[in-house]
């Protein structure tokens, strides 16, 4: 079971990251729970300076940009390995 967190205030960039991550999860057909983290205090618990951020199983994998679906797929598979 995966936990994927999207860190960010909810701006269009964060929504795009969430969509890409959801697509990657669907294609891999794995079980994943999505959590949106919007509170600054919670966001800053991760080593992140610029949003949007993507966290897979408590590990920050990407920050400050929108990753490609291929990248997200790699992160998810390595988290499951």
């Amino acid at each position: 079971m995966l936990t994927i967190k999207i860190l960010g205030s909810g701006c269009p960039n964060c929504q795009q990251v969430e969509q890409i991550a959801k697509k990657a999860v669907e294609t891999l057909s794995v079980d994943a729970a999505f959590v949106k983290v919007t509170d600054v205090r919670d966001i800053m618990k991760y080593p992140i300076l610029s949003t949007p951020g993507l966290v897979v199983n408590e590990k920050l994998v990407c920050a400050g940009r929108i990753p490609s679906e291929a990248e997200v797929t790699t992160w998810i598979t390595s988290a499951l390995a």
Partner: peptide, 14 residues
């Protein structure tokens, strides 16, 4: 520096 105004808060704190 790549910057979007949505990032102003974490950046400020950091």
């Amino acid at each position: 520096t790549p910057f979007c105004s949505c990032s102003a808060v974490p950046l400020f704190i950091g």
